[in-house]
Amino acid sequence: MTDASTSPPKTRTAFWDNARFAAIVLVVFGHAIQRLTYDSDAAEALYLLVYAFHMPLFALVAGFFSSSAEPTRRRMARLFTDLIAPYLIFETLWTITQFLVTGRTNLDPAQPSWTLWFLLALALFRLVLPYLALLRAPVVWALAISIVAGYLPSIDSTFSLSRFLGLLPFFTLGWWLREHDVVARAGLLAARPVWLRAAAATVLVTAAALAFVFVDTWRDVRLGTWFFFVDAYADLDAPQWWAGGVRLAIIALALVLMAAFLVLIPRRETRWTHLGRYTMYVYLLHTFVLYPFRQSGVLRGLEPMGLWIPVVVVASVGIAVALSSRPVRRLTRPLVEPRMPWLFRDRELGAGRGS
């Protein structure tokens, strides 16, 4: 997802916009297919594959484009206008929507609705990065924090704290990769040989096959819930001392799948490259598109299931393209990218300008 609170480079790299757009399609697909998992093992396997790495990928990309420098006035203001304000706006919209649909409401900004947790996590990532960067081996510290957090039942989803801590290693790793110029020095944006692309595809296909073959086992151990980075280990029926090792294995799995996914992303400019700049629109708006289908139950009991899964794939791409289109952006910009000059003493800060 595009984190508007970052300062993008002067020249954009097609690869990263391609990766953002491909990743946001996975987000839409994961949410769209969720209701199908109750009736289809194949859908459950694809759901597990997507959730194993798609949000860690967003955290890594956000970290890659983040700075650990001392915050400027402009960056501090944009943290609010680009993350906190949209969070409050969409949290309010979700409260109204749920009241209209169910007749019940519970406006509690401390408990994010559905996908809005990631905005709070991004804000927290950005706030702590300058401090984390002061330490030796910050990635190791972030990894230790993530693993230890799972042992503490007092850390929950309030203000997205559990997910922020759980995903912190990915965000920190993304920043570290840029800080040490690893991508350029290792030539990771160069053309990839056919054998490497074949190996990456094999990794993803193998992961999907293992998810399908052992789908009942993964359900029994609640693997999908582990991928959320929300619950403490004890709440996942794993109070044992070695539970942190499971999270470590999940983090390692996410890194492998992310690497395979990124190998397959085109390095050149494509017809959909420019849409990667607007993934925040897709992220915040797609749930309103999917909500009627999820609530109505039309996604349950669809037959033949083998036909409907490809339909959901195509629909997910279509939704991502539509929601990142210029007409939708123009209509929803005041919600997704609010500018609030009236809020700040320096009105230029609220307009997205200033230092």
Rank of each mutant, 00 (worst) to 15 (best):
F261A: 10
W94D: 08
E179N: 10
L285P: 02
R219H: 07
L48Q: 12
G244E: 05
H180G: 05
D231P: 03
P327V: 10
P71I: 12
R178T: 08
L161T: 15
P56N: 06
A149D: 04
R345A: 13
A4F: 14
A45V: 04
A232T: 06
G63L: 01
A121T: 15
L107G: 00
V321E: 12
W176A: 15
A4Y: 12
D220V: 01
L132K: 02
S157G: 12
L48H: 10
S324N: 00
F21K: 10
A259H: 06
L255C: 13
I96P: 02
A123R: 00
V61Y: 00
E44I: 07
L335E: 07
A243S: 15
Y233R: 06
V205L: 12
V221P: 05
L122D: 05
A243H: 08
S146F: 06
T273Q: 06
A200S: 13
H31N: 15
I309L: 14
G174W: 14
L127I: 15
T158F: 01
L248R: 03
A199C: 04
A199H: 01
D220G: 00
I251P: 03
L173K: 05
F214A: 14
V140L: 15
L124W: 13
D82L: 04
A260Y: 07
H274R: 12
I96N: 08
I265P: 10
S355V: 08
H274E: 14
T81L: 05
M305L: 13
T92G: 11
